[in-house]
């Protein structure tokens, strides 16, 4: 089974330790939510896994091979990164933008049948096919976020790394996107997603990775990790975990009483 692993990775950026001996393993077919306060090192961990940063110590293993032994293209075919608040610098149409996701698979001879199929299924999965011909500037925030996700899915990555994909989305689009991430995991890929809202983590995650100050506080199944105690130590807030009448769990946070 192909596993993505961080083995004791440390990284210093501008003299500050951003990641401190982080070890974590991620499983395919599961959604892992990476949680923690601002500045905990969540985005940097994703960058290290995706190969944008090289850790000062430790290594990233993909399917039993050290990441450093993989070429840029090999790595890009296995790991798809959806960066935070992704920019689109030229006003291209939606179909063109999604097709950019095929870049790691490109051949000298232009678009192949496999490219067309992958682009079409990514657009179907994110429900963006109906505005394929629209320019990016003519989309709403929610539509835009779905198109950017479709771009990553078009690369058919074995690992989808998404950095706060729900920022700036209304509740309905947030739920749609979470559902989409679940579908990706159901199809067999591993999904690692940085989230801020604990309730989103409850809705989508199989596993949780809780981070604070560049270290891992806890990793494991959602119910085991996300407890009032761990939330209090990581975020410094009190929390109440409840269940709705129809069985959905939720978290309410309140300021800590000192």
């Amino acid at each position: 089974m192909s596993v993505l692993k961080a083995e004791g990775i440390s990284l210093r950026l501008s003299g500050r330790t951003v990641l401190d001996a982080v070890s974590a393993a991620f499983k395919p077919g599961q959604v892992t939510a990476v949680l923690g306060p601002n500045g905990a090192g969540k985005s940097t961990l994703l960058s290290c896994l995706a190969g944008l940063h090289t850790p000062d110590e430790g290594r990233v293993m993909i399917g039993g091979r050290p990441r450093a032994t993989l070429g840029l293209r090999d790595l890009a075919r296995q790991i798809g990164l959806l960066p935070q608040g992704a920019d689109v610098h030229w006003d291209v149409d939606v179909a063109t933008l999604v097709a950019l996701g095929r870049y790691p698979h490109r051949t000298r001879w232009g678009e192949t049948k496999a490219d067309r199929i992958a682009v079409a299924s990514a657009m179907a999965a994110t429900d963006v096919a109906q505005f394929a011909a629209r320019p990016m500037t003519a989309l709403s925030g929610g539509e835009r976020a779905r198109v950017l996700l479709a771009r990553v899915l078009a690369g058919e990555p074995q690992w989808l790394l998404a950095d706060e994909p729900l920022a700036n989305l209304d509740p309905a689009h947030q739920l749609d996107t979470l559902e989409c991430l679940r579908d990706v995991a159901r199809s067999g890929a591993g999904v690692i997603v940085v989230l801020h809202d604990l309730n989103h983590a409850i809705r989508v995650a199989d596993e949780v990775l809780l981070m604070c100050d560049g270290r891992i506080v806890a990793q494991g199944a959602l119910e085991d990790v996300l407890t009032p105690q761990s939330i209090a130590t990581t975020y410094g807030v009190s929390s109440h975990i409840g269940t709705t009448p129809d069985g959905l769990r939720f978290i309410v946070t309140t300021p800590m009483v000192r």
Binding site: G51, L72, A86, L97, G101, Y103, P104, R151
Partner: peptide, 20 residues
Amino acid sequence: GRTLDALTLGESAARSMGVD
């Protein structure tokens, strides 16, 4: 050409797609 296309998504996304 193709690499400039990938850069449309910004530097991080382009690098994650295998752009050197």
